[in-house]
Design a protein around this nucleic acid. Sequence first.
DNA 1: ATAAAATTTGACTGTAAGTCAAAAAACTGG
DNA 2: CCAGTTTTTTGACTTACAGTCAAATTTTAT
Lengths: 242, 242
Amino acid sequence: MDREQLIIDHADDLLAEHGYHGLNLDQLAERIEYSKATIYNHFESKEDLMAAVDLRHLKLRAELFSRALIFPGNSRERMCVVGWADSIIAQMYPHWSSLHQLMETHSIQEKVCQTRRDSLQKIGHRCFEVAYEIIRQARLSGDLPQDGPSDAHILCGLISLAKGAHLLESNQSSFLLKAGIRPLDMLSLNYDIFLDGAQWKPLHTEFNYQITDQRIQSDVFAEELAHLQQITSNTSHLPPAQ
Amino acid sequence: MDREQLIIDHADDLLAEHGYHGLNLDQLAERIEYSKATIYNHFESKEDLMAAVDLRHLKLRAELFSRALIFPGNSRERMCVVGWADSIIAQMYPHWSSLHQLMETHSIQEKVCQTRRDSLQKIGHRCFEVAYEIIRQARLSGDLPQDGPSDAHILCGLISLAKGAHLLESNQSSFLLKAGIRPLDMLSLNYDIFLDGAQWKPLHTEFNYQITDQRIQSDVFAEELAHLQQITSNTSHLPPAQ
DNA sequence: ATAAAATTTGACTGTAAGTCAAAAAACTGG
DNA sequence: CCAGTTTTTTGACTTACAGTCAAATTTTAT
């Protein structure tokens, strides 16, 4: 299934370049130097192909998320790892967030073949499950108060904060631009505000999470961050505009 | 411009019934009993028409939001009004959130005519501006601590929570369904958790916001809630399934 | 070498957005 | 009421792109 990878690779490029409407299967066929019909031998529909692109990124995301479970530290530190994983994926594939958002749409999903839809769902659940498990651990260990908001509330709040920030970032609302607001840059502190509000101990006022951040960077995602560094330094070495 | 309203009305119906892909201009032409070319006399493109539908809802939203500014009470109570406004719009037009989300996409916006794009932006800004103004007032009145998160952070956090919840709700993720999580039902408490975390006084543990909620229902949105009541009671009087 | 299986493809169809010149309808001053 | 002018409407197009399929080509098995 070499061909499948080739198609996915180039579809990913086209999506990154021109978004959803930019993925033209005639153009893609030309680029991979096979006919359009070949693409349809591997994927049931355009949406199915997009799902395959999405799935590849989602698998990596799940892998990075799962590292949170074995991070040595308290429960809130483990949740920080999840936040970092999300942030790293967003930086590595800036266009992916809007693709993934589209793929979660009902009208798109219905055109994805069953097996791939099952895979997407399974991997998607794995990401949620990591966060949910950490919340449960926090409750058991007493880091979360028994009388506070429920596990579901905290999960839902964190996911909302993350999804909302990604949405705002990809939409580039002119209001936020004018106000100098960069949603993804603010996400980390917004997590802290929310988790403090939920009384998830230790609060960010009574624990030095900067050390946690350093540990995460050096122990958990060193490889990914180095790779990221390389990409961004490359692009910043481009001849300056004008 | 009677014609324009007729087209928008029916386009709205079609969008509500079958979503984005369900808005077929041939079908719409048939329904309004004019030809497709007539539609194109009023709107530059399909996306432009969708923008007109979006704009109408957005105007109402801005109107409801603006009532927060004159609500008698403390700054955090005024922010509660904004939350209620958002929630009421979501209940009145359950399909609108996904339409609006789509309309904020770059690839859609570029097909909307300039004047309508300007209107959309202006009205959109008005909604943000209400929330921002209330945050500024809170800071000035001392309800928000000087050394806490910035105005921009709080604004961004609240918008993220709201947008994220709407997104989760419209996507109906199977994981959340299984876990019994209804994002929009949880939104109100998630605001409280976040605002408590930001130390926006009075905290929801030291003030009875249930009374605020009652005042908002009876004094600010009585009409809209009655209308909503009517709609939902009508649909619940439908013959029970099975 | 050859038969069978898998893969590829050119040439097709179908659908829906978008265009335009001409017809129809709505105003206008006399 | 009418000739002339402007506005609105429309049927009959074009274009773009997703999707199909039978025939040709390549690969694999024996």
